[in-house]
Amino acid sequence: MADRLTKGDKAPDFTLSDDQGGSVTLSDLRGRKVIVYFYPAAMTPGCTKQACDFSDNLGTLRGEGYEVLGISPDKPEKLAKFRDRDGLSITLLSDPDKKVMDEYGAFGEKKLYGKTVEGVIRSTVVVDEDGTVSDAWYNVKATGHVAKLRRDLGLDGKD
């Protein structure tokens, strides 16, 4: 597992397949702030809650200059079903070999039901307009994370 990213680190660039048959390259989004969040699996209760929260807040986030990218190891076809089933408006990206997750410190050992397992560590990294990490959170909770993120980014009260 790679080290976790911290404020001031250069965000590793990546190109991943999206949920609509295209691809997204992080460096193509320079000039915008990007919230990159990692989640274990599409169409599971916690990941659905988190994706719906991000979608519900996307207008406010975009209004403040943020783009949102959700990354999981799911294949693009499953991500498309997830998007359609839950009416998601955020961009979902596929990282089946977990290379990007590893580079961001979002894959490795974690506790699950009292056992140590290897898997996706629910994480959020905010990348500034120049491609530098401005914030990073690891082992976040699916429920309530977007509200906390809004507070931490100073966006509360902006709808």
Rank of each mutant, 00 (worst) to 15 (best):
T91W: 04
L93R: 10
K75P: 00
A147Q: 12
G131L: 10
G154E: 13
T25H: 14
S17M: 14
P40V: 03
G70I: 10
A42L: 02
M101N: 07
I90F: 14
G157E: 07
D95C: 10
T44M: 12
G46V: 00
C52W: 01
L29R: 08
T6P: 00
D152I: 02
F82N: 09
F107H: 14
K78A: 15
D86R: 15
R151G: 03
A106M: 06
V68S: 07
Y138D: 02
E129A: 13
T116L: 05
A42V: 03
P45T: 08
F82T: 06
G63M: 10
H145A: 05
S134W: 09
R85G: 01
K99T: 10
T132P: 01
T116G: 06
R30Y: 05
S72F: 10
M1P: 12
F54C: 06
E109R: 15
Y37C: 00
P76S: 09
G63Q: 11
N57I: 03
S134Q: 14
T15Y: 07
N139F: 11
P40H: 07
G108K: 13
R85C: 01
V133T: 11
L69M: 07
R30E: 03
G157S: 04
D56R: 15
A106F: 02
Q20L: 11
E118T: 13
S23K: 15
R32A: 03
D102P: 00
M101H: 15
Q50V: 04
K115V: 02
V133W: 10
I35L: 04
F107M: 13
G31H: 06
F54E: 12
D28S: 14
D102H: 13
W137I: 00
V133N: 05
D84F: 01
D152H: 14
S123E: 08
N57W: 01
K10F: 01
V34L: 05
S55K: 08
A41G: 03
K158I: 07
Y66H: 02
P40M: 11
L58M: 06
S72C: 09
M43Q: 11
I71F: 04
P40S: 08
V140Y: 12
K10N: 06
L79W: 08
D9E: 03
D95K: 08
K7Y: 00
R4H: 13
L26P: 08
G22I: 01
K75H: 07
G105Y: 04
L16Q: 10
W137R: 12
L61N: 03
P40W: 09
I121P: 00
L92Y: 04
A11T: 09
S23P: 00
S17A: 15
A106T: 05
Q50K: 14
D130H: 14
T60Q: 14
P40N: 06
K75F: 01
K148T: 13
Q20G: 02
L153N: 05
Y138S: 03
K111F: 02
L5R: 07
E109G: 09
T116I: 11
A11P: 00
P40D: 10
G105T: 05
I121K: 08
G59W: 15
I35K: 10
G21A: 02
V126I: 12
G22E: 06
G131Q: 04
D56A: 15
G144E: 10
G21I: 06
P40C: 08
G59H: 10
K141M: 01
D19M: 11
P73A: 13
T124G: 04
D3C: 00
